[in-house]
Design a protein around this nucleic acid. Structure first.
Lengths: 155, 155
DNA sequence: AGGAGTCAGTTTCGATTTTCAACCAACCGC
DNA sequence: GCGGTTGGTTGAAAATCGAAACTGACTCCT
């Protein structure tokens, strides 16, 4: 995995952890309830050694835990921890984008607002102004940490 | 890139397009206002041939467009299209997760609302009612597409 | 006009990763 | 004992990546 000296950005840190070609798909399967090694392997078509490796990384990172679901023979399944479940907005956001821009508007599964029964979007939301914020009204700036660059950061 | 017969899932389709080790970081740079080939290259430390390749893929996919910012010599920069800008919730979600679970609650870089200069959160948003929706007011249902699996999909 | 510099790449080639297939071990049911 | 399932490991071939050298169009400087 890439190593960068003192990475300043949470996106980069996140992607260093789960941003390879398979990991987010593995997590998607876990969200969908596909939790066993062999089921994930056949569902994704991933090579077994890679699946072993990726699951190990996820377990080490505390995103997934390996829990026995039977004794004799001991068999394990992989379950999302709270940390892993917290990735659901990320996966949802990727799904919604794919629904709209790659799958041609078709949504295999959708989340709906109870009251009006229409589909939900994920929106950046300003808790101060209490309004949704368009990408063009977003800037990035250094947080409590150090500053990175000084150029125009508007989209 | 991986090819699967008739992929049913928008997450997979999305990741097939932008789910490699560099593309989301390139997009992050574009969101941050780093738009020139050489600036992206030095910022990420990506090999130039790979950057050429990834930017080409993004342009082909209509996520990014190559626009000249000067003549003589012709120089281009890469700008997000509307399709590309629509990925902001995904990147924001990944960033917020990283802030909390990888960066130890600290946000090295934060996205702020231009108008009021405060940090943004991601909220499920109902476009019909025009309100943010709490998790308790959300249901899921199969969309217009086909169903994928029938097992327990609870986390 | 000559020389140095910048930007955006392309080419080359060795190193790393991924894939594919075979093998393995523990256990089960028959 | 025999075949089957689960959850892996091992090793070789193929694909991908990374670092550095090179290119070409054009600047600016003198």
């Amino acid at each position: 995995m890439r190593t960068q000296p003192a990475v300043e950005c949470s996106i980069q840190r996140t992607l260093d952890l789960i941003g390879d070609r398979w990991t987010l798909l593995i997590l998607r399967d876990l969200f969908r309830g596909v939790r066993r090694f062999s089921r994930i392997q056949e569902d994704l078509g991933i090579a077994k050694n890679l699946l072993t490796d990726r699951l190990g990384t996820l377990v080490d990172a505390g995103i997934v835990e390996k829990v026995p679901y039977q004794e004799r023979p001991v068999r394990h399944e992989y379950r999302l921890t709270e940390k892993g479940r917290a990735l659901s907005p990320s996966l949802l956001a990727l799904m919604r984008w794919g629904d709209r821009y790659v799958s041609g508007g078709l949504a295999p599964t959708e989340l709906v607002h109870d009251e009006c029964d229409t589909r939900l979007e994920l929106q950046p939301w300003c808790t101060t102004c209490n309004v949704p914020v368009a990408p063009t009204d977003i800037s990035s700036r250094p947080g409590p940490g150090r500053h990175i660059g000084t150029e125009d950061t508007r989209v």
